[in-house]
């Protein structure tokens, strides 16, 4: 087995954004299910939140290659 601890660290750090992205889409689905006509309003907000939560995983991914 070869590899660095960076791999393990990145795997651990991806848990947080994973949960965050899940919560965001859960809330989005909930919102659309309760009020389908709000879909157009909620969609950009959901994707924005998704992008912001994902940024943490992305930074970890880059640090994995730098470190």
């Amino acid at each position: 087995m070869e590899g660095t601890l960076n791999l393990v660290g990145y795997g651990l750090s991806a848990i947080g954004p994973g949960i965050g992205v899940g919560l965001i889409f859960a809330a989005y689905i909930n919102g659309v299910a309760r009020q389908p006509e709000a879909r157009g309003l909620l969609q950009p907000i959901a994707f924005l939140g998704f992008a912001l939560a994902e940024a943490l995983a992305i930074l970890g991914f880059v640090l994995f290659f730098i470190g």
Binding site: A51, E54, A55, I58, L59, F61, V62
Partner: peptide, 13 residues
């Protein structure tokens, strides 16, 4: 930084 890295890292990964 996040704007560029998000695009880059998604495509890279």
């Amino acid at each position: 930084l996040t704007l560029s890295l998000r695009l880059f890292a998604n495509m890279f990964a």
